[in-house]
Nucleic acid binder design. Structure first.
Lengths: 203, 203
DNA sequence: GTATAGACCGACCGCTCGGTCGGATAATAG
DNA sequence: CTATTATCCGACCGAGCGGTCGGTCTATAC
């Protein structure tokens, strides 16, 4: 019997954290179970006790990661009351000193490249994006209710804003020599405001 | 001695095309040399005669692919005379029936996930993006010269437009249930126009 | 004719990695 | 105390892969 009741939860958290770091450092294709064991401070058998296969482990890692990032985004957004501020509240995604960003992008790029060929991964991506869309949609609708935004289809606008975030992020992270953080923040703001204006003026 | 003088060029093209298809189908991490040999109609030794290692082959595949896509974009853009039309001329990127798009996105996602961990891949990505930026910049500058656009920093605007293309593309390809082609085209247009307006009104 | 060299083949080698399995340890149950 | 069960270890297995290498074939050179 386990000496600690929550041992399983603790171990799984250890393993997931170690896996996340390993994946972010080396990339999914290069990470071995041995790497993760070393990073987690467990043996092969010990790890196998909690996750039966590499695929099962990786799926858990990605789900956990997406959940974490989403929760953070939700909390950050909740700190703002103005709808536009809410829509622009994800600027920590373009902060080179942010540990979530530094870990997150390598993991996200790896994830997407697998999702191209794996329906289960694509489903996770779909659900994750959908969560963001719901969040953004709420902010847009707040603006519509308050009269700050007019005649905006919140669905369409949320999709657009979310996609812009992702595009800027991709460039900012993979080609930083060409895309500075100030550029990213300025572009985000202009694009979001430009889109909102567009929806209001040409519904 | 070779019976055909350009045999090497022909074989290399065969191999690159076969590799591209294999990568797009299975993903870099899953493609084996044996797969590519089968697809190219060559033996292992025959392939090794032209490309010494898997890494060398893959680098050649990606360079060739990026070149091809860029050339197409350049030619397509040249068919338009209006600067705004030029900036919006890459809509074939959101055409689900386009073979370049269908092959291209899997390859691009794979490439980016490798680029995260490989400086040489990142350099190739950097150069590729830069080519697009030059192209877009020219179009913006045409608009500035003609007076159609005013007070626009072509550098900044080109980066923004290019990033928006990429963001929409990512969503459109990986979560098509949430992001239809009409949405992609409409969002692209609104974002580009919105950005141009923003730069003109708040330089 | 013979010699030479490019083009290509495919069996083989060596290595890596994911997964397994018998066993050790320790805490609890009875 | 013994029996049981969760936890964890690490040696081992087997499959798959990239790359090699001796050999074959063919066309050119002489």
């Amino acid at each position: 019997m386990p000496p600690i009741v929550e041992l399983e939860a603790i171990r799984k958290a250890q393993i997931l954290e170690a896996s996340l770091k390993s994946i972010a450092t080396s990339g999914c294709a290069n990470v071995t179970m041995a790497d993760i064991c070393r990073s987690a401070g467990l043996s092969k058998g010990g790890l196998a006790h909690y996750y039966k296969s590499k695929n099962e482990l990786f799926l858990a890692v990605f789900e956990e990661f997406f959940k974490r990032i989403f929760v953070r985004g939700k909390l950050t957004m909740a700190q703002y009351s103005d709808p536009l501020d809410k829509l622009l509240s994800f600027s920590w995604l373009y902060n080179a000193d942010d540990p979530d960003a530094l870990l997150g992008y390598p993991v996200l790029f790896d994830f997407m490249s697998i999702a191209v060929h794996d329906p289960e991964y694509r489903r996770i991506f779909h659900d994750w994006v959908n969560n963001w869309l719901v969040l953004l949609k709420e902010a847009v609708n707040e603006g519509v209710s308050s009269g700050q935004f007019k005649n905006i289809d919140a669905d369409v606008a949320a999709r657009a804003i979310s996609a812009v975030y992702q595009g800027i992020a991709t460039r900012w992270f993979l080609a930083p020599e060409l895309h500075s953080t100030p550029w990213a923040l300025d572009t985000l703001r202009r694009a979001v405001i430009g889109l909102l204006d567009s929806y209001q003026n040409q519904p």
